[in-house]
């Protein structure tokens, strides 16, 4: 069901593949994760994702930037830790437990999940609550495709997600940084929105481990921590599910966590952001309402006070 989302964007806006492939060859360490499995090498690892014209005027960050500066606390709290440690994560075989209010609950292997799915490329802005941002050419499919496949039952209002918790493969979970496992959630209409994708790759190659291999959520109009990585469980629920950062500090991290320059976070003003990779003397850029996706998603929150329900 690829290509449903139309806009006036062109593929020419993306960094030419040859340019980032060259850069990638310089970073053998990080890119090594991409070459895992039966894939011959980075250059051959194409997922042949269907091009979409989403991302007009956006220049994606380089693969090196996207794979070197990560928050994935299961592998350590330093931005460089995930790249250093995420190779320990076994991503094949992988299965996702889908349960709760669904017609066909059960354990779904990656093959099951990708069966009949057309992967497409989505170039999205990514905004971290810590005030840094990137533009990432994700590869994935709409979450609604998966939810329709498993059959959402009447009475389901929310979708809960859970990240793998493997102390043997995740050195960061030995420390109680948050209440493991990492959990996230969406309201059902947010989950069914065509912008919401399950991503299995980026830059037309399989997802690097540090970015949430083999399958992760991407919700571009919310702060990055909502886009949960390395998912092992999806549960359809009636009640709003508990979410990791909200449990840690509810006044800082709301359930919705929509990017909102007007909603002051206790730690950071959210009015501005800085693009990762823009250098020592770069200026901050103004943050956009819903991270620039206001036209597409504002109608989901029509009668809501977005300051109270942050």
């Amino acid at each position: 069901m690829a290509g449903r989302y139309k806009s006036k964007l062109t593929w020419d806006d993306v960094t030419p593949k040859s340019a980032w492939l060259n850069r990638r060859q310089l970073i053998a360490g990080g890119a090594g994760a991409l070459a895992l499995g039966s894939i011959a090498g980075p250059a051959a690892a194409s997922l042949e994702a269907q091009k979409t014209d989403y991302g007009q005027g956006l220049e994606p960050n380089t693969l090196e930037e996207i794979t070197s500066y990560n928050n994935f606390y299961e592998f350590g709290t330093d931005k460089a830790d995930p790249r250093r440690n995420a190779h320990m994560l076994t991503t094949d075989p992988w299965s996702v437990e889908i349960d709760g209010l669904v017609d066909n609950p059960g354990s779904y292997s990656m093959e099951d999940i990708l069966d009949g799915v057309t992967l497409e490329e989505r170039i999205y802005r990514f905004r971290c609550v810590e005030r840094w941002s990137m533009v990432i050419p994700w590869v994935g499919f709409e979450l609604s495709d998966l939810l329709n496949k498993v059959g959402v039952q009447a009475g389901a209002n929310y979708v809960a997600f859970e990240t793998a918790l493997r102390p043997d493969e995740m050195p960061g979970v030995k420390s109680p940084v948050i209440d493991w496992p990492y959990r996230e959630g969406l309201r059902l209409d947010e989950a069914m929105h065509p912008l919401t994708i399950m991503a299995t790759g980026l830059y037309d190659a399989p997802m690097p481990n540090q970015n949430g291999a083999p399958i992760r959520l991407v919700v571009p109009w919310k702060y990055g921590y909502k886009s949960i990585k390395s998912i092992v469980r999806i549960t359809l629920t009636e009640q709003q599910p508990p979410t990791a950062w909200n449990l840690y500090s509810p006044q800082e991290y709301g359930f919705f966590s929509n990017v909102n320059p007007e909603r002051d976070h206790p730690r950071w003003s959210q009015r501005f952001e800085r693009r990762v990779g823009s250098g020592l003397f770069s200026k901050q850029e103004p943050t956009l309402m819903f991270n620039g996706y206001e036209d597409e998603v504002a109608n989901l929150y029509q009668d809501m006070d977005l300051i109270e329900f942050h």
């Binding site: 070197s68 500066y69 931005k79 460089a80 840094w132 990762v276 990779g277 020592l280 770069s282």
Partner: peptide
């Protein structure tokens, strides 16, 4: 280091 790329992709924060 920060000015020449030795402190990673977010040199301001790192510095």
């Amino acid at each position: 280091l920060a000015a020449t790329g030795g402190l990673g992709f977010e040199p301001i924060k790192e510095l």
